[in-house]
Nucleic acid binder design. Sequence first.
DNA 1: TTCAGGATGTACT
DNA 2: GTACATCCTGAAC
Length: 203
Amino acid sequence: MARLDGGFFLRDTVEAARDLLGRYLVRETEEGLIVCRVTETEAYVGAVDKACHAYGGRMTERTRTLYAAPGTIYVYLIYGMYHCLNVVTEAEGAAAAVLIRGGEIVYGEDRAAARRFGVPAAALTPAQRRIFSDGPGKLCKALGIDRSLNGLPAASSPLYFSDGLPELGLPPRREGLPFRTGRRIGIDYAQEAADFPWRFWLA
DNA sequence: TTCAGGATGTACT
DNA sequence: GTACATCCTGAAC
């Protein structure tokens, strides 16, 4: 089965972040499917990572989801107006997740364009098309992701990951996909953790 | 093209 | 009250 379940996420978070590149993020809406190919991810590991919301075992209403079972969707509101999508990794009780920072639209572009810009895909300017899902907040807006999805298991929800989508002619991730590694974005406050090379993106 | 500043709600001091 | 895993706008170049 192509759909990724908890077993895929029950492992080292950095490894999972790398392995999500090239997989598909599928959003089921009332209007139909929207599908993104994942192109940029970041790892957050509560046990050792000052940039993680649950660093040092911090438990609040918001961070509760980070301790849930692997494959659980973690969505939070940032800067009062944007959402960020994560998927929980490692064993239940270990606070860790992969942030989905970016992707490229491969199916349902009209539906995504309507959510992001309020117009059909054909009406997008070339610039709008380029920045379609470049950035976690933009991706969430295009895919209609908000906190109503927080805490749901990705294996059985209207938002899930898949290794290829045969019914849409999208192939599984191939071995040896080239990717780059670097510092994570927007966490300069996190002291030594700001330099962890835990961001990954397709070349 | 780059850059400063503002929007805006929640978490935490 | 302050900071935040961000993005958009408008001004200056």
